[in-house]
């Protein structure tokens, strides 16, 4: 592996690239530092998504963020998938490639969800072996994100932050710290989010994610469909201080508003870069009590029916 995680650049403040914003970006060339794409949306694209991406990649730094590597699955790695991933990377030259510490299915099936891994010595050994295989194949470090989780397995014996730390020590992979996911998972699984962030290997955190969620009273769903809440901004402030600042990106995937609204939400991050001031994270009240879906599909499925020319 030629490149080291510690050599990856700080890209500044970026946004997730979504189809709803294609025209705005091409027309106005907004002052965003970088864009993150969902790798699977472009790996096989020979149509407009890829055409637009090629234009945007000429003007902005791009990072590839995947949802289907399934590094935490007990199934073997899918080398057909990795081959397509690498081909896209060769073509658009992303600053790095990331995915999630999760599994999406076993026995060759795909749930299309980011499922939680059991956190113990057995899974650590299997996952670190697979990370090394991926890094060797891609010839670059793999960056892995902490997912939002809604359960803890009885068989888990290692806290997630410790698991990530061990994973990094064994493979020198990078971490994508999703601050909102830490908050969501800590509420759902009853752990201390500050202890989590304090315990991470900060020097390997390459990127951070911010997003909104939905609080349903007894659990929180990671919906990416609303502004970032104050407790998450507070955690971001802590993570910013501990990492010394790193590439930060806002995800907005459901009920996607106009580009300028997303951009304004991203720029709020500047207000939280001057140090962590609190010793605990404020609690949040319930917002809604409706059934929602984590990881909405809006950003993974093109709205083809609305893309016809008049005919």
């Amino acid at each position: 592996m030629k490149q080291k995680v510690q050599e990856l650049p700080d890209l500044g403040l970026g946004l997730g690239l979504r189809g709803e914003h294609f025209n705005h970006i091409l027309e106005y060339k907004p002052a965003v530092d970088w864009f993150e794409i969902i790798s699977e949306n472009f790996m096989d694209s020979g149509g407009r998504p890829r055409y637009v991406l090629d234009q945007i990649a000429e003007q902005y730094p791009i990072v590839m963020h995947g949802v289907s590597m399934s590094i935490g699955s007990t199934d073997p790695l899918n080398y057909d998938y990795l081959k397509r991933l690498k081909k896209l990377a060769d073509e658009i030259n992303p600053k790095w490639i990331s995915d999630h510490l999760c599994w999406t299915g076993v026995l060759s099936l795909n749930s299309h969800d980011l499922l939680p891994v059991v956190l113990n010595e057995e899974s650590l050994q299997l996952i670190t072996t697979k990370i090394k295989q991926v890094q060797d194949y891609l010839e670059r470090p793999l960056i892995l994100e902490n997912p939002s989780t809604y359960l803890t397995f009885q068989q888990s014996t290692i806290p997630e932050w410790q698991f990530l730390k061990s994973m990094v020590e064994e493979t020198n992979c990078g971490l994508l710290l999703d601050v909102n996911n830490v908050y969501v998972s800590s509420f759902n699984n009853e752990f201390d989010p500050i202890e989590y962030i304090e315990g991470l290997p900060h020097e390997n955190i390459v990127q951070m994610h911010l997003a909104g969620h939905q609080h349903n009273g007894d659990h929180i769903i990671d919906t990416h469909d609303s502004p970032v809440v104050d407790p998450v901004w507070e955690l971001f402030s802590l993570a910013w201080e501990r990492t010394g600042g790193t590439s930060t990106l806002l995800e907005w995937d459901g009920n996607i508003p106009e580009f300028d609204i997303c951009h304004a939400e991203l720029l709020k991050a500047k207000n939280y870069m001057d140090g962590f001031k609190k010793q605990c994270i404020a609690s949040e009240t319930m917002q809604q009590d409706i059934q929602t879906v984590s990881n909405p599909i809006d950003f993974m499925v093109s709205n083809v029916a609305k893309d016809f020319v008049d005919s």
Binding site: H112, D113, L115, L151, Q154, E190, D218, H219
Partner: peptide, 24 residues
């Protein structure tokens, strides 16, 4: 397989994933 918490039973934790799978 799943730990209960003070707010949700093991079944309720699992139910979040079951609901999301089919809804998505």
């Amino acid at each position: 397989f799943v730990k209960s918490t003070s707010k949700l039973s093991a079944k309720e934790h699992m139910r979040i994933y079951q609901r999301s799978y089919i809804a998505r």
